[in-house]
Amino acid sequence: MVGLAEEFGRERVFNTPLCEQGLVGFGIGMADMGHTAVAEVQFADYIFPAFDQIVNEAAKYNYRSGGMFSAGKLTIRSPCMAVGHGALYHSQSVEQFFMAVPGVKVVIPRSPIQAKGLLLASIRDPNPVIFLEPKVLYRASVEQVPEDDFTLPLSKAEVIEPGKDITLLSWGTPLYSCVEAINMLRNPPASIAEHFPKDLRNASVELIDLRTILPWDRETVAKSVAKTGRCVIVHEAPITAGAGAEIGAYLQDKCFLHLEAPICRIGGWDTPFPHVHETFYKPETVRIADALVRTLSY
């Protein structure tokens, strides 16, 4: 975002006081006046002071006015997820807090190309959008991003790798651990090879990036799970009441007769994000690979 103020002028690009409730409220007012507003909460961990503005104002503005007013031109950007040294107040995942809020959309990209296409789609969407950017990917993820204008569809999951034996579903940073887990399943290190049965190493894993958390792509995910009969859901947020719980409940209802194993969830532990041992808190490669083995072996 370097140089935006110089390119577009200080009247359009400016710093606000460090008050999340204020800057989101300001964005709602701008959107209601017909302007395209992009508000940035510096860390998703601090989006909670603005929770009232998002849930009770932005999400309901169009509904309560019968379509006369709208905050749909508002997009709220915020860095989320673990950064490697963020601990309690700078490494949290917050997407699950908005799962029960009709009227807003929640988007999490996994890479630079995805970020550009999904962000432009979010800005142009007629609904308020919370756009959560995995902060560790700012420096770790490298792609050649097209300079031309393009968008990627919201509420449409992407099948990154097709498969027929098990569905592996995630979003944001954990997707990279999912790829490593698939590779570990196929070619386990000699030191732990005994834990990976040889008859499972050729298992065909369908890897899906959900991309939009709310409203999520039920059709694509349910179609995949009905085909594979097995599903592992991975996210960084704590496992209890995480987004995976809602997804799992839906799949249990819609895919019950197709399931060959219980739906498995791998997530953060039900503790505050720790100062040390972040890699043991996050759903890292070994935990995901173990979940694949357990679900395929059921």
Results as ranks from 00 to 15, higher is better:
residue 202 N to Y: 07
residue 24 V to K: 08
residue 110 R to G: 09
residue 260 E to R: 14
residue 26 F to V: 04
residue 100 A to N: 15
residue 212 T to D: 08
residue 53 Q to K: 08
residue 131 F to I: 00
residue 248 G to A: 14
residue 252 Q to T: 13
residue 3 G to V: 07
residue 136 V to I: 12
residue 66 G to H: 10
residue 174 P to H: 04
residue 63 Y to H: 11
residue 111 S to P: 08
residue 266 I to Q: 12
residue 153 P to C: 05
residue 119 L to K: 07
residue 63 Y to F: 15
residue 64 R to F: 03
residue 203 A to V: 01
residue 149 D to M: 13
residue 161 E to V: 04
residue 294 R to S: 07
residue 54 I to V: 10
residue 205 V to Q: 03
residue 112 P to Y: 12
residue 228 T to M: 11
residue 94 V to M: 14
residue 291 A to R: 00
residue 50 A to K: 06
residue 94 V to Q: 14
residue 38 V to T: 03
residue 227 K to L: 13
residue 34 G to E: 10
residue 32 D to I: 13
residue 234 V to E: 13
residue 206 E to K: 06
residue 13 V to G: 06
residue 4 L to I: 07
residue 262 P to R: 07
residue 6 E to R: 15
residue 90 H to Q: 08
residue 19 C to Q: 09
residue 69 F to W: 14
residue 165 D to V: 10
residue 176 Y to N: 01
residue 155 S to I: 02
residue 216 W to L: 02
residue 202 N to C: 00
residue 48 F to W: 04
residue 150 F to N: 01
residue 156 K to D: 02
residue 26 F to E: 00
residue 44 A to M: 04
residue 162 P to G: 01
residue 298 Y to E: 02
residue 25 G to M: 11
residue 76 I to V: 15
residue 147 E to A: 13
residue 147 E to C: 03
residue 156 K to A: 11
residue 40 E to L: 04
residue 62 N to H: 15
residue 249 A to P: 03
residue 108 I to S: 05
residue 156 K to N: 04
residue 293 V to N: 05
residue 211 R to Q: 10
residue 195 H to Y: 10
residue 183 N to C: 00
residue 131 F to G: 02
residue 88 L to I: 12
residue 265 R to H: 11
residue 277 H to E: 05
residue 149 D to Y: 15
residue 280 F to C: 03
residue 65 S to G: 07
residue 252 Q to W: 00
residue 26 F to I: 04
residue 231 C to R: 03
residue 18 L to S: 09
residue 127 N to C: 04
residue 90 H to C: 04
residue 291 A to K: 00
residue 51 F to N: 08
residue 206 E to T: 01
residue 273 F to R: 06
residue 229 G to Q: 12
residue 76 I to A: 11
residue 32 D to T: 12
residue 218 R to D: 01
residue 39 A to H: 00
residue 170 S to V: 03
residue 71 A to M: 09
residue 153 P to Q: 06
residue 84 G to Q: 13
residue 52 D to H: 09
residue 84 G to A: 12
residue 39 A to D: 02
residue 112 P to R: 14
residue 159 V to I: 15
residue 75 T to W: 09
residue 138 Y to R: 06
residue 198 K to M: 05
residue 29 G to A: 06
residue 97 F to V: 02
residue 203 A to L: 04
residue 201 R to G: 11
residue 227 K to F: 02
residue 142 V to I: 13
residue 225 V to P: 07
residue 257 L to T: 07
residue 31 A to P: 07
residue 189 P to K: 01
residue 20 E to H: 05
residue 61 Y to Q: 06
residue 53 Q to L: 06
residue 48 F to S: 05
residue 186 R to F: 00
residue 228 T to V: 08
residue 19 C to D: 14
residue 225 V to I: 09
residue 280 F to L: 14
residue 297 S to Y: 06
residue 13 V to A: 10
residue 148 D to I: 01
residue 196 F to W: 03
residue 165 D to T: 06
residue 115 A to F: 12
residue 159 V to A: 09
residue 254 K to L: 00
residue 137 L to C: 05
residue 52 D to M: 03
residue 201 R to I: 12
residue 83 V to G: 08
residue 228 T to Y: 06
residue 183 N to S: 10
residue 60 K to P: 02
residue 2 V to W: 10
residue 285 T to D: 03
residue 98 F to Y: 15
residue 296 L to E: 00
residue 91 S to G: 09
residue 120 L to K: 15
